[in-house]
Design a protein around this nucleic acid. Structure first.
Lengths: 146, 146
DNA sequence: TAATATCCAACTTGACTCATAGGAAATCTA
DNA sequence: TAGATTTCCTATGAGTCAAGTTGGATATTA
């Protein structure tokens, strides 16, 4: 896949969705992992990243678990992916959050293309919150085509 | 980078651009490689892929080289990337050209999001031809935001 | 026939994803 | 207080893949 998203980002979003579907409850890593069909230990690592980045709260000990640290409408999907996987841009030269210079940039005929791709990806992901996913707001929404 | 494009795809497009800027001429791999700042041998592999996929023609021997096999307005960027790097979708479950089933698909709240991302990427790339890049049609075009 | 350049295949290297593993620290219940 | 539970933290390994290297065969030209 040319522009594949890794399983880390995908499973992080799955974990957030699961927690969002059980607000007010504490869910164990095992429960979250089972719903995403990944091992507990792997999901644990991912959830720890979510914790470090302020998206979830952990409670230790028996009857412990995880819960969302923010309301779903304040969890931005683009931001989550950037925090876990880095910039959304397909190339460093068009990244807004992690620009990288390129020797070919001055006369580059590709840059405008990558810029458009970046803008479209960022638009979709930055516009979406966890609440939108939980409410299935996107399902029947028309995709725009200029 | 979460959705990075590989250097293979990028350099393939650079090669096509260079050939498009010198239509009617035969350019050697060395000439093309130098303009993209990659080694000749690496660019050679990439150009061979372009040849296998019908985008360029090679002429062997002294004074040989490569030339475009199609007019630039018939070279679709989305198709080039798919041929060299695979489907444009960020996940197999939303690929139009290489769908992959997923056990979580039935109730998946992420799929509509990936679908939108795929559609936006595909729209930009499938709409663009090599001629558009050469004519710099994208440079000042407004990016749409629903 | 010598030089040039494509054509083709095999291999190496390094980075990164996807885990696996082990154990420390905190918390709850009996 | 003991034991079970669960988060927390770090290290390590396997596998994959992009990126680049290398060597040489084949065709063409002068």
């Amino acid at each position: 896949m040319a522009l594949k998203l890794s399983s880390k980002g995908e499973n992080a979003l799955r974990a957030l969705i699961t927690l969002g579907q059980h607000q007010g409850e504490l869910l164990t890593v095992k429960e979250i992992a089972d719903l995403s069909l990944v091992t507990m230990k792997y999901m644990e690592q991912i959830i720890l990243l979510l914790k470090i980045n302020g998206y979830v709260l952990g409670k230790r000990g028996a009857n412990g678990g995880y819960t969302l640290h923010l309301p779903p409408n304040q969890i931005n999907i683009g931001e989550v992916i950037r925090k876990l996987e880095g910039p959304l841009a397909p190339m460093g030269c068009v990244s807004e959050t992690a620009y990288e210079a390129c020797l070919l940039e001055p006369n580059c005929l590709l840059k405008p293309l990558w810029k458009r791709v970046r803008d479209q990806i960022a638009f979709v992901l930055d516009q979406t919150t966890l609440a939108d996913l939980l409410e299935q707001k996107l399902t029947n929404q028309l995709v725009n085509t200029i």
